[in-house]
C-alpha cells in the first residue's frame, strides 16, 4: 500500500515525456517547493544510489554531500523542476570519479598480483534461459526488500545507474543519458539488460529473503 502511494507521485522533473516504449512506467516526482525540501526528499535516495554504486556508506555520504553542495552553489538559482536532473548529473559524475580513483588505486595496490576480474563483464551473456517464470512468484520476490537490495547491488554499474535513474528516480531517457554521459540508445540497452538480469536473479532466488550472491 505504501509502495502504491509512493508510486502515485505525478508531475515530475521527468515531465511525462515518453520517447520509448518503457517511459510510461517511470513514475515522476513532484516539483520541489524549496531547495531544503528537495534535498530532504532526494537525500535518502541519493545516498542509497551512491551506496549501491560504491558499496561503502561513508564514501557514499561524502559523495552525496559534495553533490548537494555543488547543486546549491552552482545551480541553486535554476528552476526547481531542473534540480532533480541536475542533481543526478552531479551525483553520477561524482560516483564515476570515485570509481576511477578506486580503479587507479587498486591497479597500484595489485601491481604484482593476479590480474583483476573484469568489472564490467556483461552478465547478459551468462543469463540462462528461464525455465519457468511464474509472474506471481516473481512479483512476490520483487516485494522483498533484502532480495531486491541484493539484486540491484549485483548489477554492473552502468545497468544499475540506468535502472535506478529511469525506474526509481523517474528521469526520462534523455535525462538519464545526460546524467550517465552516454547516448539514449545506450541507456535503453543498459535498462533493458538490467531488467532482464534482475528478473533472472529474482527467479533464481530460492525464497523471498534468500541469499543471492552472484554479485562478485
Amino acid at each position: 500500500m505504501a509502495a502504491t502511494l509512493a508510486l502515485n507521485g505525478v508531475l515530475a522533473y521527468g515531465g511525462g515525456r515518453s520517447n520509448d516504449g518503457i517511459s510510461s512506467m517511470a513514475a515522476t516526482r513532484p516539483t520541489p517547493l524549496s531547495m531544503d525540501a528537495f534535498l530532504r526528499d532526494a537525500g535518502r535516495r541519493a545516498q542509497r544510489m551512491a551506496e549501491f554504486a560504491v558499496r561503502d556508506r561513508e564514501a557514499a555520504l561524502d559523495i552525496v554531500q559534495e553533490a548537494m553542495i555543488s547543486l546549491v552553489t552552482r545551480y541553486g538559482d535554476r528552476e526547481p523542476s531542473n534540480w532533480g536532473p541536475l542533481f543526478q548529473v552531479i551525483l553520477q559524475s561524482r560516483i564515476m570519479d570515485h570509481h576511477r580513483r578506486e580503479t587507479r588505486r587498486k591497479k597500484w595496490m595489485t601491481w604484482l598480483s593476479a590480474p583483476p576480474d573484469e568489472p564490467d563483464e556483461d552478465p547478459w551473456q551468462q543469463v540462462p534461459e528461464i525455465a519457468s517464470s511464474d509472474p506471481v512468484e516473481l512479483l512476490g520476490r520483487a516485494d522483498d526488500m533484502d532480495t531486491v537490495m541484493a539484486v540491484v547491488e549485483a548489477l554492473p554499474l552502468r545497468q544499475q545507474q540506468a535502472f535506478l535513474l529511469r525506474a526509481w528516480e523517474g528521469l526520462d531517457t534523455a535525462q538519464t543519458a545526460a546524467a550517465m554521459g552516454c547516448s539514449e540508445g545506450s541507456v535503453k540497452t543498459h535498462y533493458f539488460r538490467a531488467l532482464a538480469v534482475m528478473r533472472q536473479h529474482l527467479l533464481n532466488s530460492n525464497s523471498p529473503s534468500g541469499e543471492e550472491n552472484s554479485h562478485e
Binding site: 509502495a3 508510486l7 513514475a27 525506474a167
Partner: peptide, 12 residues
C-alpha cells in the same frame, strides 16, 4: 516488475 521494484526501493 519495474513498478514493484521501484516500490520496494522506495520503502527501503
Amino acid at each position: 516488475l519495474a513498478g514493484r521494484l521501484r516500490g520496494t526501493l522506495e520503502r527501503s
